[in-house]
């Protein structure tokens, strides 16, 4: 039982890390601000959720699990607002849009 829980927790944490890695690759490789933000926020929020879930399973305590949910929610709020503000600023500053440029 204990070993099984540990395995589940570790798999979740590692899966979260894979999402983080994907988000980071997206940040480095994607062509413009908007798609980079897309990669960062979506992948990282998912990664954070999986890491938090994994840690909650590993901790095996309801209190810790609850706190990790709070951590994830606050992370979500921060990511959503900062991504929105960056995208908004970029749009107002006339930041080019990669796909539109290639169409031209």
């Amino acid at each position: 039982m204990n070993g099984a829980m540990e395995t589940v927790g570790l798999v979740l944490v590692i899966a979260g890390c894979v999402f983080y890695a994907a988000g980071t690759i997206g940040l480095l490789r994607f062509p413009d601000v908007y798609s980079r933000l897309h990669a960062l926020t979506k992948a990282d929020n998912q990664g954070l959720l999986l890491v938090c879930l994994g840690l909650a399973v590993l901790a095996g305590s309801v209190q810790v699990a609850f706190l990790l949910i709070v951590v994830w929610s606050v992370g979500l709020v921060a990511a959503a607002v900062s991504a929105h503000l960056i995208a908004r600023h970029a749009r107002h500053a006339g930041e080019p849009h990669a796909s539109r440029e290639t169409e031209r």
């Binding site: 606050v74 709020v77 959503a80 607002v81 929105h84 503000l85 908004r88």
Partner: peptide, 19 residues
């Protein structure tokens, strides 16, 4: 300043300040 009427910013304050 960021205008508080900017979408999400006002709600950020409402959520984050008490936390």
């Amino acid at each position: 300043r960021v205008d508080r009427r900017t979408p999400l910013v006002g709600s950020l304050l409402t959520v984050v300040a008490p936390i």
